[in-house]
Simulated scan of single mutants.
Amino acid sequence: MQTQADLETILLGPVLAERTCGDCTVCCTALVVDTPEFAKPAGTPCVHLTGKGCGIHPVRPPICRTWFCAWRRVASLTEETRPDRSGLLVSLNFVREPQNCFEGVSINIRVLAGSDAIATGLAGKVLDTLCDQLVPVWFSDGSKKMLMHPDKDVAHFVLTGDPAPPNLADEVAAWRDRYGVFGGSD
C-alpha cells in the first residue's frame, strides 16, 4: 500500500527545491493535526508557533517535517498563491471515512478567514490550475465544502452509475475507472 507521502508526490509532484515556506505559517494554524506525537484542532495556532515561526523547528514532529502545501509542490501555482499571500491553503486531503468516492483522496482548496481571493478572482485561477487531471478538487469557503472537479454532471453519473450521455461518456468512464473501486454514494 502506498503511503500518504507517496500519494502526495504522485498527485501533486515532488517538493520544489526552489520554494521554501519563508515566513508563511498558515498551516501551523489552519490545519487539524492528529498524530500520536502531536495534536491540535483546526483554526488554532500551534503551541510552538512564535512571532518568528516554529519555536521547535529543529526538533518538530514528523508530521511537520513531511507535510507540504500544494504551493510547495505544484510549479504552476504562482508566487502570489503562497498561502500567506493569497489567503488560500491548497493541500491533498485524506478522509478516513469518505461519504463518496470523491472524498477519500482529493485536492482541497481552503479559503482562509479575511481572504479576498474569491473577490479578486485568484481563487478561480487556482481552481483552473488544479482542475486538469483525474483528481477530485474540493473548495471550502469556511461555511461549506463544494466539489468543483469533476463538474456536477460528471459527478452525478459517476456516483449514480447511470449511463452517461455520449458527450460525457469518455470522461465519466475515466473517473469510474479510477474511483469505481471506492464505490458510489452511501
Rank of each mutant, 00 (worst) to 15 (best):
A5K: 09
D6C: 04
D6S: 00
L7M: 08
E8T: 02
T9Y: 00
T9I: 01
I10H: 04
I10A: 05
I10G: 04
G13M: 00
V15H: 08
V15Y: 05
L16C: 02
E18I: 02
R19E: 04
G22C: 11
D23N: 15
V26A: 14
C28N: 14
A30M: 13
A30D: 10
A30S: 10
V32L: 15
V32C: 12
V32T: 10
V33G: 13
T35L: 13
T35A: 15
K40C: 07
P45D: 08
P45K: 03
C46Q: 05
T50L: 04
G53T: 10
P62D: 02
P62I: 06
I63H: 06
I63V: 12
R65A: 13
T66C: 06
E80C: 14
T81A: 12
R82S: 12
R85I: 13
L88I: 14
L88S: 11
L92I: 15
L92H: 15
N93Q: 15
E97D: 07
Q99W: 05
N100C: 11
N100A: 07
I109S: 05
V111R: 04
L112V: 08
G114L: 02
G114S: 08
A119K: 05
T120R: 09
A123N: 06
V126Y: 06
D128L: 10
T129A: 08
C131D: 03
C131H: 02
L134R: 11
P136V: 14
F139R: 12
L147G: 12
L147K: 06
H149P: 09
P150T: 03
K152H: 07
K152A: 02
L159C: 01
T160N: 01
P163A: 05
P165H: 04
L168I: 00
L168P: 06
A174E: 08
W175A: 03
D177K: 10
D177N: 07
R178Y: 08
G180K: 12
V181H: 15
V181G: 13
G183S: 09
G184C: 12
D186R: 15
